[in-house]
Amino acid sequence: MHVIAGCNIMYNQGLTFPPVYSYLYEMQPLVTYTMVGFKYIFPFLTCEQIYCLLSAICGALFIVESVNFVYRITSFRKIYILLSLFLIPESFAISMYPNSAIFAAVFFVCALNRLLDEKFYVAMVLMVIAPLYRIDILIVYPVVFFIFLFQRKSVKESITRSVFLAVLILLFVTIGYWGLRANPLTALTGYNGMNETHSFASQV
């Protein structure tokens, strides 16, 4: 509801960098501008409807891309892969409410499939966009190294490609956050504060 409120304010008052009001903007800046952009295109829809609709579309794409990715690296039956998605906690979170995590996740899984297609630079662009929707998606980026190994590239070549990709991604993501006037490092201190205040670590 905080995300939606921030989008409504920006739509009514005009674009600003950063927004006048938002929710965790420092770690997911592109979410607000995506919602407002679609609101300008479809003014007859509310920001809430847009957020829910885009989350649902991304959720469906995430399922398709995830099943295809796992099938390509394992050859498991697709029905088993589909059923296994219900074991992922995020599947339930996404089904309950619109969540910025699904925007980042679908871009990243699409990037993995493009890597398997040997479309290196297309994958890189997708992997630059994903953290602008949610910075913590970077946690899973090291899996790219193993994708290169899976493609039967040598360890040296896999390391070289991974480092090259990592440097470019960090460069462009940094530029993106700077351009959107967001500082993801403040999100880290915010999480540390939550851990100390609410004992999140012990609860988990």
Score class of each variant (00 low, 15 high):
His2Phe: 13
Val3Leu: 03
Cys7Phe: 06
Asn8Met: 10
Asn12Pro: 03
Gly14Val: 10
Leu15Trp: 06
Thr16Phe: 04
Pro18Gly: 12
Pro19Phe: 04
Val20Gly: 11
Tyr23Thr: 03
Leu24Ala: 10
Tyr25Ile: 04
Thr34Ala: 10
Lys39Gln: 08
Tyr40Lys: 09
Phe42Cys: 11
Phe42Thr: 10
Pro43Phe: 05
Pro43Ser: 05
Cys52His: 02
Leu53Val: 14
Ala56Val: 07
Cys58Thr: 02
Leu61Ile: 06
Ile63Tyr: 04
Ser66Gly: 13
Asn68Tyr: 05
Phe69Thr: 10
Arg72Gln: 13
Arg72Asn: 15
Ile73Thr: 06
Phe76Ile: 06
Arg77Phe: 15
Arg77Leu: 12
Ile81Thr: 07
Phe86Lys: 04
Glu90Val: 00
Ile94Thr: 13
Tyr97Trp: 07
Pro98Asp: 05
Asn99Val: 03
Ser100Lys: 00
Ala101Trp: 00
Ile102Ser: 02
Ile102Gln: 00
Val106Ile: 14
Phe108Met: 08
Cys110Arg: 05
Ala111Cys: 14
Arg114Gln: 14
Leu116Arg: 01
Met124Asp: 05
Ile129Gln: 02
Val140Tyr: 07
Leu149Thr: 11
Leu149Met: 15
Arg152Ser: 13
Lys153Ile: 11
Ser158Phe: 11
Val163Gln: 11
Phe164Gln: 11
Phe164Asp: 08
Leu170Gly: 09
Leu171Pro: 04
Phe172Met: 08
Val173Glu: 03
Thr174Arg: 02
Thr174Gln: 09
Ile175Met: 08
Trp178Met: 09
Trp178Gln: 06
Gly179Asn: 14
Arg181Gln: 15
Asn183Phe: 01
Pro184Asp: 02
Thr186Trp: 03
Thr189His: 12
Gly190Phe: 12
Gly190Asn: 14
Gly193Ile: 09
Asn195Arg: 11
Glu196Thr: 07
Ser199Ile: 08
Ser199Thr: 13
Ser199Ala: 15
Val204Arg: 02
